[in-house]
Simulated assay, not measured.
Amino acid sequence: MKKVLLALSLVANIGLAKEKVVVLHAGSLAVPFSDMEKAFEAKYPQYDVVREAAGSRACARKITDIHKPADVMASAAYKVIDNLLIPNYAKFNVHFVTNEMAIAYTPKSKYANEINEKNWTDIFLREGVKVGHSNPNMDPCGYRSILVTKIAEKYYKQDGFYNKLMGYGESYENGEERKEKVIVRPKETDLLGLIEAGVYDYLYIYKSVAEQHGLKYIVLPPEVSLQDKKFSDSYKGATFKITGKKPGSYITKKGSAMVYGITVVENEKEGLPKNREGAVKFVNFVLSPEGQDIMKRNGQGVITPPVITGDASILGR
């Protein structure tokens, strides 16, 4: 009798086993996607969403270079999906939300009571002031930080601002940083604990992330913040080289309005994704009115209707 009961128990447990949906996503999506996970699992209790946050390019590299099993990829820059995943690892790209760059700080930051949207470039160059940004080769927030610095130099008519602050030249080689002025980490969310601990003073970060973590922040002019397509012509005047698909190759990034992308990961040769049905349901949930409300509550603009490139027929769109 005990053996029969044990067998029945095992069968019941197997029946209750949930299917995993593996989601790799940008660090800046950690908070909204945590909310998304809970809401999705409440609606679809047969699934267990397993999330992993990293820089968007780092996420893509995990898929392309080490063939990490994944079902969904969400990037803080839609072009990461276009450049690194399509056509071999994804068939479509959905532009679904927007954001903007801001300058975050804490009460511990030097000149915190003085800084504003007009004088931040002057304060950044003051002796003893340290600034943080993420690695441009791993995270779109990193190269956007550099592009914003270049745009700001022109907008504020402050000659030499970029070189005085960062001095990377045309590309960020070998992960070097100007230790007297700049702190660099793989993704922008890696820098949050350091600024809160007073290791450095100011952080280039997405406005939504600053809001989510209760940081003080400077709202940059739309001509600088990469928020508004209206200023696309001036944005694209700033350029920076990041590493490409192959070692020794580069991609030139141009300033542009910030647009996030999401896709279902697939590679027929490697048998990815593991859970295609769950992946499709998750992406459609993100794009649903409920998913859009979650993004709005977390400080991100929503693209309605979403812009889809490629073959997204599996989404029923």
Score class of each variant (00 low, 15 high):
residue 13 N to I: 14
residue 38 K to L: 05
residue 245 K to F: 00
residue 189 T to K: 03
residue 252 T to A: 09
residue 229 K to L: 10
residue 143 Y to K: 09
residue 187 K to T: 10
residue 272 L to F: 06
residue 128 G to R: 05
residue 88 N to W: 14
residue 104 A to G: 04
residue 33 F to I: 09
residue 34 S to D: 15
residue 240 F to Y: 04
residue 216 K to Y: 12
residue 173 E to N: 10
residue 277 E to W: 08
residue 291 G to W: 00
residue 18 K to S: 05
residue 11 V to L: 08
residue 124 F to I: 06
residue 168 Y to S: 13
residue 210 A to M: 04
residue 156 Y to E: 01
residue 87 P to A: 00
residue 10 L to P: 06
residue 64 T to W: 12
residue 69 P to Q: 05
residue 64 T to C: 07
residue 54 A to P: 02
residue 54 A to R: 02
residue 154 K to A: 13
residue 162 Y to P: 08
residue 224 V to H: 09
residue 232 S to E: 14
residue 114 E to C: 05
residue 40 F to A: 02
residue 159 D to F: 09
residue 281 K to Y: 12
residue 142 G to A: 12
residue 134 S to N: 03
residue 5 L to H: 03
residue 218 I to V: 15
residue 61 R to Q: 10
residue 106 T to R: 01
residue 247 P to T: 09
residue 192 L to I: 07
residue 67 H to D: 10
residue 28 S to Q: 15
residue 50 V to G: 10
residue 101 M to N: 11
residue 30 A to S: 15
residue 227 Q to Y: 15
residue 271 G to Q: 00
residue 69 P to M: 02
residue 285 F to N: 10
residue 234 S to Y: 01
residue 124 F to S: 05
residue 191 L to D: 03
residue 303 I to R: 13
residue 44 Y to L: 03
residue 151 I to S: 02
residue 230 K to S: 04
residue 214 G to F: 02
residue 141 C to H: 14
